[in-house]
Each structure stands twice: as C-alpha cells, then as structure tokens.
C-alpha cells in the first residue's frame, strides 16, 4: 500500500480490526521499522521517534503519578522550558482542555474523557507539526466522544497540524477528516481513498443531519461492508444509531491482541 499525506491535511484511516492501522501509525512514528518499503516524513526516512511528531494512544497513557498540571507540562519540561513560560503555557493548555479546577488532581480521580483530554493537550502543548492519533476516543462513550470531536476540531482549526487519525468508527472519520483512507481486511491494503468535501468549520452535531454526511457515509459504508464479508453485513440501518459503529462485533481495544506493538 502507498499513500501520502499533505502538509496540514487531516487524514483518517478506517479499516477492520487487525488490518494494520496501528502498525502504520507506529511506523510513521518510528516505533516499528517496516520489513519492506519505506516511510518518509518531510522527504527523509523515519529512523527514530521524530521530534515534531505528537502521538496520542488509544490506551490511557497519562502518567498516573503526575497531576493534571504536571502531565500537561511534561513535553515542555523535557524541552527545558522553565519558570513563568512553563507556567503560562501549562495554564493555557489546561484551560484549552477544559480542565480548570482539576490542575492538582491525579489521573486516578478523573473520568476517561478527562484523562484523554489531558493526553491530547499534553501532546498539543508542544506544538507538534504532525499529529498521529490511534483511536484516541475509542474507549469513550458517544457523548464524551462528540464533545472531544468538537474540541479537537477547534484546536485543529487554530493550528492546522498534519493529522493521521486512525479509527474504526466511520462517522468519526467523516466528522473530522479531509480525506478518509479505507483499508481492506487483513492483510491490509488500501481499498478506497475518499475525499470528504464537507466545508469547515464543521459542527459535529448538526453535521450528522446533513445530506452530505449521509451521502459520504453510505458511500464508504458500502465499501467497508464488503470488507466485513458477513452475509447481509451491510443491511440494516445505515444512518442512525446502529450504523455509527463499524465493526461492532470486534472490540478493537483488546490489549494483548497485538503483543509486538503495544
């Protein structure tokens, strides 16, 4: 498979569980070396974890022994930012994440959504040019997910990072991305590359009621359905509720299913 992501583009990768989405992201992030083929970022090969890349994992990777404030501060501390600058930028980050009042809370006291906000803001506060996100909202409930979509879009409109966003949730991909890459079942190939012409800024709630959204959804849902391969797999309600999860029978998050990666 081969694909390119343009500068400042928001690309989503959708595909059945186990098709290699995380593997792609890990190769982009320099965590995994490809056994064949090449990955280039800015025209150069990826050899190590690149400095300009931010990575948000599906799994909760907020440091449990650090408070919210000190988690957000991590990247800045690593870069040697100190004193008032550190303080100002951390305060700004905490505010943008909507976590004011929880600065001194330890992660164990926060909800899953709040923790993922911390993880997101911790990554954004160092201004990465490239953002890799591996099903960052996969473990969250629909409401929390929607509000985080809105926040992510707002933050992205402001900075326009280059984003590669992995998900198994088609509606999430359409809501967020400029372009959606649909992958085939294992072994993963690119099945379809689809532009999402929905104008920005997007309203994550209203969006779902529009004709455009329904159209995009049905086009890609059909293609994905072929990948699921189950007889009659794509019948049923395509637009509402039941349709919003792609592979509902395959929980994506089982750890240990990918021992070599995560």
């Amino acid at each position: 498979m081969s694909f390119e992501v343009a500068d400042q583009e928001f690309v989503a990768i959708v595909g059945p569980s186990g098709c290699g989405k995380s593997t792609i992201l890990n190769m982009l992030g320099g965590l995994v070396t490809p056994s064949a083929g090449a990955i280039e970022v800015d025209g150069g090969p990826v050899t190590d974890v690149p400095r300009k890349v931010g990575y948000v994992f599906q799994k909760d990777t907020v440091f449990p022994w650090r408070t919210v404030r000190r988690n957000v501060a991590l990247g800045l501390e690593y870069r040697g930012v100190r004193g008032t600058e550190l303080e100002t930028r951390v305060r700004e980050g905490v505010r943008l994440a909507g976590l004011e009042g929880f600065e001194d809370a330890f992660p164990a006291t926060l909800s899953g959504g709040m923790r993922q906000r911390v993880a997101l803001m911790r990554t954004l506060v160092v201004n990465p040019e490239i953002l890799l996100m591996d099903e960052p909202f996969g473990a969250l409930d629909t409401h929390t997910k929607l509000s985080l979509h809105a926040e992510l879009l707002t933050l992205w409109e402001a900075r326009h990072q280059t984003v590669v966003f992995v998900t198994h949730d088609l509606s999430e991909a359409i809501t967020l991305a400029d372009r959606v890459i649909v992958m085939t079942r294992r072994p993963g190939r690119i099945k379809l590359v689809h532009d999402v012409p929905i104008p920005r800024p997007r309203d994550v709630i209203k969006l779902r009621e529009t004709e455009e959204y329904a159209h995009e959804y049905s086009v890609m849902w059909h293609v994905l359905g072929e990948e699921l391969g189950a007889p009659g797999g794509v019948q049923g309600d395509m637009r509402t509720g039941a349709g919003s999860r792609l592979v509902s029978g395959h929980p994506q998050s089982a750890p240990g299913a990918r021992p070599s990666l995560q």
Binding site: G29, Y55, T61, G75, Y78, A119, V126
Partner: peptide
C-alpha cells in the same frame, strides 16, 4: 513498566 508510557515520553521529547 508500561511500554506505551515510555513511548509517550519519547514522543513528548524525552531523552
């Protein structure tokens, strides 16, 4: 130690 915590630290720029 959770390998993903180490990875996150590396992505955040840790030596």
């Amino acid at each position: 130690v959770d390998a993903d915590l180490i990875h996150s630290a590396r992505f955040l720029g840790a030596s």
